[in-house]
Simulated scan of single mutants.
Amino acid sequence: MKFRALIAAASASVLVAALGAVPTQAASKNSPDSSEFTHVTTVAEGLATPLKVAFGADSSMLVAESFAGQLTKISASGERSSLYSAGGKEIGGVSYAGGTTYFFENSMGEEGQPDPNATAFLKSISPSGQVSTVADLAKYEAATNADGSTVYGVRDAADSCLAQAPYLQSHGEQFSHPYSSAPVGSSVYVGDAGANVILKVSANGKVSLVKALPAEPIKITASVQELAAQMGMVVPDCMLGLTYWAQPVPTDITVKGQWLYYTVLPGVPGESLSMGKVYRVNLESKKTQLVASHLSAPTGVAVDKNNQVYVTQLFGEGVAKLSHGKAVTVMPAVMAADIAIDGNRVAVTTKVLTESGELVTARLAR
């Protein structure tokens, strides 16, 4: 079994099946703070897995209907038009800056499992509508595989114990699944949810490593053992009390000043245990800080003009504001996947794993 977050595997069928085992409550027990957002409006319904959203030109919003292979432009009034379509492929994310739209076109292995032969392209759409390939991220991953020597799973079990569940230990596989991006100047930062890295792509397509993410520790308790069993993974009793080193899957990134913020959704079974985190790394010093932890599958992050951080929790209560390391729900929503902020404007995708995903807009109250 691959040690990877279900959302990063990009398998709709696996994700939906897993929801039955996921707690519906968010990590935060605080009452929703309705003073943060005003003019909350559902702009579009019937979207197919709208996992990513960005603000585009002329007050429009760009939505990656990921598993449908569709990049859609939606006006403030809800009118839709297709920007790009790739049948049989995944649109892994979308971002916009300076008139240019960036997105990923990914091919995936069978049932969303890692495939070293899969393709992963960062593409752009110019203001005139010309589509270009900026970089081949799968090629970069094949050449580097930054986590190839990392041991995931249980590292310190006795040989006799590990023999009972050999699938609970593996090395990082060669796999690129770019899932989020943040354009800055002439470059684009990329969160690769397959390679477990943050990358930087220059205007000429050169790819460089910003940060290889370290494995995320999860203590194996009886509750972890029980949840794993519900997901079809047997954890032997001899592993109770040991540490499971989960894959540190980056699900979203955003840049504010010299800080790059990123969400981490630890791989199986961490995505179901409110083990998600938000970090920020200084792009000059490379110093990394933990912003918040105990999040329920954080898959979107945005920072407003006052440096307030907001996250979407796919398996939580919706949109949360992070304050002193805690998550306070500010917009209740089901299956909220992504959030974008532009000035006082807010865009959120919700119900993303249902038959009718939605795009919701709001205004910051301050």
Rank of each mutant, 00 (worst) to 15 (best):
E110G: 11
K326P: 03
V224Y: 01
A347C: 08
K200G: 04
R4A: 11
S13N: 14
K219F: 07
F3W: 08
K200L: 01
A337H: 04
D58R: 14
Q174Y: 08
R366S: 15
T101V: 12
E284I: 02
V43W: 12
K73V: 09
D147M: 08
Q169G: 07
R4F: 04
D338G: 06
Q174V: 15
G318N: 05
S186E: 05
E216F: 00
N106M: 12
F55R: 00
N145Q: 08
A302F: 00
S274I: 03
A17K: 14
P332M: 09
P214I: 01
D338H: 02
P32F: 07
L240N: 11
L209E: 09
N204K: 14
G257H: 10
M335R: 11
P116S: 14
T101F: 06
Q258S: 04
G46Q: 10
G92F: 03
V281T: 01
S187A: 12
G232Q: 10
G78T: 03
K2R: 14
F121E: 05
A5K: 02
I198V: 11
S34N: 15
A17P: 08
T24K: 15
M275E: 06
T354H: 10
I341R: 04
A68N: 02
K277I: 02
K287P: 05
G87M: 10
K326N: 12
S66H: 09
S11K: 01
Y167S: 14
R155Y: 07
L283Y: 00
S13P: 09
S13V: 15
S11H: 03
D252K: 01
S31N: 13
